[in-house]
């Protein structure tokens, strides 16, 4: 049976490690401050007898890395191609969480969103319409409270369905200002010619446009090592299927 890999991504301090612990039964350290986790950790979780490999990532404010812990997270999300990227959003500060979510949706279709800290949101008098959000974003949105183990069953069910392809997503793709869009489309075309279908051309085009030199270096590195190792593997997963107009 195929083993599925699920990466936990999100802003710092949204409860990724707490969710990781709740699912895997392991003991990642948690703390109420941004930057507690700085390295990758992985563990296994069996749901309905299907093994899922869960990867806990450091938190990141965007896919544009600033510090080394964020780079670890960025590289994993972008280059390791997990079967599902499970975005953990903080229900009490959705605005900033969504900034990252929109970027991840640009890059891959295999995204599942969970709204964590729902208990806190309730305490703070926030009412969140997950259905509405899901409709707007084009991916499932599941309210949970990782620390109280609430909503984990629904989450796991949805995860499995996404892994097996039962749920098809139609992620919202950001549209930028006209002049920027024009540049993106041009770059995207060139990039997909150079890189082929295994890389998310539109997303990369945006990174090239705003000159993310660290990412470009990481990409070149990746290409060089693939060249040695013989081809890109795991191309059925996330990265290959994203992107806008091109197909080849």
């Amino acid at each position: 049976m195929k083993e599925y890999t699920i990466a936990l991504a999100g802003n710092p301090n949204t409860g990724k490690s707490t969710l990781f612990n709740a699912l895997t039964g392991l003991k990642q350290h948690t703390g109420n401050w941004a930057g507690k986790t700085v390295t990758l950790a992985s563990g296994y979780y069996r749901y309905k007898n299907i093994p899922l490999k869960i990867v806990d990532l450091p938190g990141t404010y965007s896919l544009f890395s600033n510090s080394e812990d964020e780079e670890v997270a960025r590289d994993y999300i972008v280059f390791e191609k997990p079967d599902v990227t499970l975005l953990v959003l903080d229900a009490t500060s959705l605005e900033r969480s969504l900034n990252l979510a929109l970027q991840v949706l640009e890059m891959t279709d295999q995204v599942l969103i969970c709204l964590n800290l729902m208990d806190e949101a309730k305490k703070k008098g926030l009412k969140i319409n997950a259905k509405q959000l899901s409709k707007n974003l084009g991916v499932p949105v599941i309210p949970i409270s990782a620390r109280n183990r609430e909503g984990l069953d629904v989450l796991s069910d949805t995860l499995l369905k996404m892994c097996s392809g039962t749920i098809k997503t139609k992620p919202y793709k950001m549209k930028y200002r006209e002049e920027i869009e024009a540049k993106i489309i041009k770059l995207e075309k060139e990039l997909s010619e150079i890189l082929g279908p295994d890389y998310p051309a539109r997303w990369l085009a945006i990174r090239f446009l705003d000159g993310d030199s660290k990412l470009i270096a990481a990409l070149k590195n990746k290409l060089a090592s693939n060249g040695e190792g013989g081809g890109v593997h795991g191309s059925t997963t996330a990265l290959g299927r994203s992107g806008g107009g091109h197909s080849c």
Partner: peptide, 11 residues
Amino acid sequence: GDLKRRLLDLG
């Protein structure tokens, strides 16, 4: 530069 990016990301 870098700081700009960080501040932008934070909102």
